[in-house]
Computed example of a mutant assay.
Amino acid sequence: MIENTKAIVINTIKYGDTSLISTCYTKNCGIKTYMLKGILKSKKSKIKSAYFQPLMQLNLTANHNNKGALNSIRDIEIDHFYNSIYTNIKKQTIALFLAEILYYAIKEEEQNQSLYEYLETSFLWLDTHDNVSNFHLLFLLNLTKFLGFYPEMNLPNSNYFDLIEGNFTNINNFNSVSGENLVQFKKLLGINFDVLHKIDFSAENRQTILFILIQYFELHLSGFKKPKSLNVLKSVFS
């Protein structure tokens, strides 16, 4: 089936000497993987390898096959040109990290326009703002809304947050967040990107909250893996 859709690049690997395989999150069809034959060899092709950088936002005309099969792209154009994501080291590192997160977290080949719009607007915010040191933390927390395990807010003044149950409680379990870590974690709850600069995370706080969020994803998503770029992210923001 020929489909016109917006798409966000989340993973690209080399296939052979001349081709790429790229996985994108599409607005109309969820996760789709494309075979880009000869893209590294042909200089005249309208489809360029530069289009498939992490989090690039595209408009595609694609031939979508049955579930699980590789698809092909007939036509392509950039939907939004980023001004700084690929030139600013912090933003570039965040983009690589979040692309890996999305690759491991989203598997569905179904339309979810609210999730797509969240990704689209979030990455445009990242591109157009300077104070982004906490961006990935709030992005991950808010992503859980669309994945089905955002923290329940029934008892927010409790002494513990249970990572398995996803709720606040006064019962201390093995996977509970408590004490100062809980105080820092709560700073992200219920806020939007425009007030991120007001959160006074230290580098140590930031790494601790990131560890909690990664653990939260691991507990709730089957097959989720820690991104390889995690150590690079920690290094850049330490």
Results as ranks from 00 to 15, higher is better:
Phe123Arg: 01
Leu119Val: 07
Asn112Thr: 05
Asn134His: 14
Asp127Ile: 00
Met153Gln: 15
Ser122Val: 01
Phe139Tyr: 12
Thr144Met: 10
His136Cys: 02
Ile85His: 05
Leu115Lys: 07
Asn131Val: 05
Glu109Gly: 11
Ala99Arg: 09
Asn154Ala: 12
Leu102Ser: 11
Ile85Ser: 07
Leu126Thr: 03
Leu102Lys: 11
Asn131Cys: 03
Leu115Ile: 06
Gln113Leu: 12
Leu96Ser: 04
Ala95Arg: 08
Glu117Cys: 01
His129Ser: 01
Thr121Val: 02
Tyr118Arg: 04
Ser114Gln: 15
Phe161Gln: 09
Pro156Tyr: 10
Asp130Val: 01
Asn159Glu: 14
Leu147Ser: 13
Ile89Gln: 04
Asn159His: 14
Ile89Asp: 02
Ala105Trp: 08
Tyr160Trp: 08
Tyr160Thr: 05
Thr93Tyr: 08
Asn154Val: 11
Gln92Arg: 06
Glu100Thr: 03
Tyr160His: 11
Phe146Tyr: 15
His129Met: 00
Phe149Ile: 13
Thr144Gln: 11
Thr128Arg: 02
Thr121Ile: 01
Gln111Thr: 11
Asn88Tyr: 03
Ser158Gln: 12
Gln113Thr: 15
Glu120Trp: 02
Pro156Val: 13
Asp130Met: 01
Ile85Gly: 07
Gln113Met: 12
Leu98Asn: 14
Ser133His: 04
Glu109Gln: 15
Ala95Gly: 09
Ile106Asn: 07
Asn154His: 04
Asn142Tyr: 09
Tyr116Ala: 07
